[in-house]
Design a protein around this nucleic acid. Sequence first.
DNA 1: ATTTACAAACAGTCAAGTTTGTTTGTTTGA
DNA 2: TCAAACAAACAAACTTGACTGTTTGTAAAT
Lengths: 209, 209
Amino acid sequence: MASSKKPRTQEERSAETLARIRRATIDVLYERGFSRTSTTEIAKVAGLSRGAMTHHFASKEEILTDAIAAMLEEVNQRLFAFAEEYGERGGTTDEIVDYIWQFMSDRLFYVTMEYLPETRHNEEFKARLIPVVRRFHEGLDAIWSALARKRGVPEDHARIVMNTTMCIVRGMIAQTVLRQDGGYYADMLAFWKNEVRRQFPAPQKEGSS
Amino acid sequence: MASSKKPRTQEERSAETLARIRRATIDVLYERGFSRTSTTEIAKVAGLSRGAMTHHFASKEEILTDAIAAMLEEVNQRLFAFAEEYGERGGTTDEIVDYIWQFMSDRLFYVTMEYLPETRHNEEFKARLIPVVRRFHEGLDAIWSALARKRGVPEDHARIVMNTTMCIVRGMIAQTVLRQDGGYYADMLAFWKNEVRRQFPAPQKEGSS
DNA sequence: ATTTACAAACAGTCAAGTTTGTTTGTTTGA
DNA sequence: TCAAACAAACAAACTTGACTGTTTGTAAAT
């Protein structure tokens, strides 16, 4: 019975364990909710002992903020990538709205709703998250600024439309918790896409109406 | 040291105590957050013993759902009252948006954000809240339907604009938790009021553009 | 190339503090 | 006198942080 485990460097072990903890934390947050999220459960989902976690993190709060920050950073990566690709390609406004709706409703904002209220009651928690959230908004800005330049729309105005879009999507996702009705949200999204299209007139072709 | 307490009927005592518990529950929920809301704290804020609460409610969950339902019912009352008064008077669309923003950001949606995620993980909780939330939306519907009839706009369309407005407001309030910037939200609200105005052309006068 | 010493990574247990539901006792109104 | 309204104490269950011990990798010395 030779051990089938390949030897890994300490750094690799550490990095992988941290990743496991982060993933487990977000999973538990999403599936069980903030008030039910215990370090015991996180360790179980991560397949680790609680003692191992105390080696990597000093407190529960540190585990949470680290996991959330890592999650947002990852979203940022994808956001900037999309912004660059989109800027070169010059896509439609509909596409942006769909993209935002998609990645927000795919767990991101549900997880956000779990920890967001905590920041109202925990200054440290809030202080730790504000910088990553700022970066998140820079990522969004990159997308809409690219669009604004292409369409010759003032960036200030683009920013307002962007922020409004984000708020609509947040509000819609919040509502999905108590109201499940696909058509309802589809109608609203369609309506909003129409409005955004109006705000960003297409430069040459692609005007469908 | 004669007791200065006036004798009250059992029903009065009971009703007042229930009201105190409800108020305290919402207060604690708003100020301390869902995960920090304990029955001990609620009792303290209500100025009651925990034992007294167990007489009125069988469980913590019952205390919470009762308080939340009562809060929403009270909002509904005001909503329907506004709808009636507004319908007779025939106010502006700006006014509606302002009104919604006002009562949503005055604690209502902050409290909602505290308990909303819980409904994702607690079916009983959710089942108890869905009917009151439905009534809440009927109240909103009453306002916008009144407007739609006055302006000769299809009610379906009014409903979409209404729901979008609600979602924007929800999303904005959620964002205020991590971003405080009065001007930012003022600009967005102004932009949105403009959009709503476009969707509901004034019947005769009051066209400002 | 081993051996040896050390630090990082991990597991498991314990005690202190909270929280909730229950139970028992007391006061107030019908 | 009886029941509702309230108070207070209790027990069981959780959760967290701290502490102790074991394994795994690293690097220096032989």
